[in-house]
Simulated scan of single mutants.
Amino acid sequence: MTTDSWFLSDPVSPGQEQVVKHICARVAGPLIGPEVRVASLPLGGVQVWLESPRNRWRYYHRMARELRLAGWHTETGPDRLLLLGWSSVCLSHRARMLSAALTGRLAHFDKTAFMAVMIATRLRHAGFPVEELPAEVEARCGDALCWPARLADLDGLERRSSLEPLRLRLAQVAGLEAKVARRCGEHLALASRVARMVAGGAVPARSRAAGPRAGLTERMVCVSVPNMALSAGTAL
């Protein structure tokens, strides 16, 4: 075991197999997704493989990239993908990507408004049902933002570790995810309002949550972290 993951140290979180399968199936797409198979490893971790051998290597690397962005350490073999636990390096990368999203694409509401106008206008000209327009525009704008789906992937998964440095990383990620979830919710609400305007205001605003849940709270993780100064080897 390396200091970068808790493989063989922590038990697999409940529901982790299904979360991993969902992420891999989403990345593989509707044609390959049903062929994704997931199972626990005897000593901890998860293995992923595809039933079909066609382009298997390419899909494994796509899946590994998305799983690493979620914070897991992965190893790609010739016939399967191994997920071996939370990685400090990968969690740090996720934190950087979340921060970049907040100061980048999610900071520009004008882009979402313009996209919503263009999508709604094309759909109206194509005869799309006007009552379904806001939900469809919102969904397409959410796909373009990427993060709503990524946050939803981990929604409800208990993310924990017995290693203090990883708990701190998970807490840092939780705080950033909550901010990104709120910002995404604001973008999607804007897209829905724009779509209703394009529809002539005939569609009432539908009741929706404030945005995708992060599935983890910063306070929940930090409460289990000892209140002491970090050594130089575990500092964030």
Rank of each mutant, 00 (worst) to 15 (best):
residue 172 Q to E: 15
residue 134 P to Y: 09
residue 168 L to C: 15
residue 143 D to H: 13
residue 121 T to C: 00
residue 162 S to C: 14
residue 154 L to A: 10
residue 163 L to S: 11
residue 109 F to S: 14
residue 166 L to G: 04
residue 183 R to H: 08
residue 108 H to W: 11
residue 178 A to I: 07
residue 158 E to P: 02
residue 122 R to T: 04
residue 161 S to T: 12
residue 140 R to D: 04
residue 159 R to E: 09
residue 177 E to N: 04
residue 141 C to G: 03
residue 172 Q to G: 13
residue 155 D to C: 11
residue 148 P to Q: 07
residue 130 V to C: 08
residue 187 H to N: 02
residue 151 L to C: 04
residue 116 A to C: 09
residue 177 E to L: 02
residue 129 P to L: 12
residue 177 E to Y: 01
residue 99 S to I: 03
residue 182 R to N: 09
residue 155 D to Q: 14
residue 179 K to C: 04
residue 146 C to G: 01
residue 142 G to A: 05
residue 97 M to R: 15
residue 154 L to E: 10
residue 132 E to I: 00
residue 186 E to G: 05
residue 184 C to H: 05
residue 157 L to S: 06
residue 161 S to V: 10
residue 145 L to I: 12
residue 110 D to I: 02
residue 119 I to W: 00
residue 95 A to W: 06
residue 165 P to G: 15
residue 138 E to Q: 14
residue 178 A to T: 14
residue 183 R to S: 12
residue 175 G to E: 08
residue 151 L to I: 08
residue 125 H to L: 11
residue 119 I to D: 02
residue 137 V to D: 00
residue 158 E to D: 09
residue 108 H to L: 10
residue 136 E to Y: 07
residue 162 S to Y: 09
residue 177 E to F: 01
residue 167 R to L: 11
residue 138 E to K: 04
residue 182 R to G: 06
residue 121 T to V: 00
residue 136 E to S: 13
residue 180 V to K: 07
residue 130 V to K: 07
residue 168 L to P: 00
residue 126 A to E: 14
residue 119 I to T: 10
residue 148 P to T: 08
residue 163 L to I: 06
residue 107 A to K: 04
residue 176 L to N: 11
residue 161 S to E: 11
residue 132 E to W: 08
residue 156 G to A: 05
residue 148 P to G: 08
residue 182 R to L: 14
residue 187 H to W: 04
residue 128 F to V: 01
residue 121 T to I: 00
residue 122 R to W: 01
residue 112 T to I: 09
residue 166 L to C: 10
residue 161 S to Q: 10
residue 138 E to W: 03
residue 170 L to N: 05
residue 118 M to I: 02
residue 143 D to W: 11
residue 91 L to E: 03
residue 169 R to L: 10
residue 128 F to P: 01
residue 144 A to E: 10
residue 145 L to A: 09
residue 105 R to S: 14
residue 92 S to C: 10
residue 135 A to H: 02
residue 137 V to S: 04
residue 104 G to H: 10
residue 110 D to Q: 07
residue 90 C to S: 12
residue 111 K to Y: 07
residue 112 T to F: 09
residue 143 D to A: 14
residue 114 F to W: 13
residue 118 M to P: 00
residue 181 A to W: 00
residue 165 P to I: 15
residue 149 A to V: 02
residue 170 L to W: 06
residue 90 C to L: 02
